[in-house]
Amino acid sequence: MGRVWSLFHKFASPKWFYEISGKLLPWFVAMTGLVLCTGVVWGLAYAPPDYQQGNAFRIMYIHVPASILAESSYMMMALAGAVGLIWKIKLADLALKTAAPLGASLTFLSIATGAIWGKPIWGTWWVWDARLTSMLVLLFLFVGVIALRSAMENKEAAGKACAILALVGLVNIPIIKMSVEWWFTLHQPSSFKLTEKPAMPPEMWIPLLIMVVGYYSAFATAWMMRIRVEILEQENRTQWVRDRVRTA
């Protein structure tokens, strides 16, 4: 247990994390590029067209992973907030800080690509559908966390306040989703029905799986790049950062 604990604290030390992430980063960049390129080429050029939607379904390969990542990035953000509050780890606060804008951008992507996909398929950019509406609320939750941080001058207090807000949001997300789904089933518009699609053949869902992996990897890469700068900002008075600045 003692060993695990010391490992935990070592991992949470900004300097150690900066060094190890610096070594990992090139690998992550390479992997992200490779996986995303494979997924995009396969999805755009080689996957067979959908028998109902034709080629418009190819938007799925960028839309579905964005939606998955948007939700998991909120979870990661709230989790980082909890870790920061409980164990008072500075790195966790930075993790929350960097996850928020990335998560917001993925939520935006999910909504934007969903709207573009909706136009040829449903005939309209926007539908007040349960999933779209929950995504919109998720975007608002991300915006709230970002707005709270930018409004508070004291950095340490801002980190804790954002952690609390993120956790409150996390508790609310299942309630919001449930209520939105209930609202949708009772207001169900007659013209648009998102019925279950028939099972996809493997040559359609394998590229999707690749894209999901690629998005996760891209998120990890972007998150690492950002948190490294945040670490430098936070530790700018320490000797190791000063040395780095001098030799850079």
């Binding site: 034709g54 080629n55 418009a56 190819r58 938007i59 993925l106």
Partner: peptide, 19 residues
């Protein structure tokens, strides 16, 4: 893209910009 080119490519373009 079977007539859906504008939609497919603009969705991919938006994604590229955000990435």
């Amino acid at each position: 893209m079977g007539g859906h080119g504008l939609y497919v490519w603009s969705a991919y373009a938006v994604t590229l910009v955000v990435f």
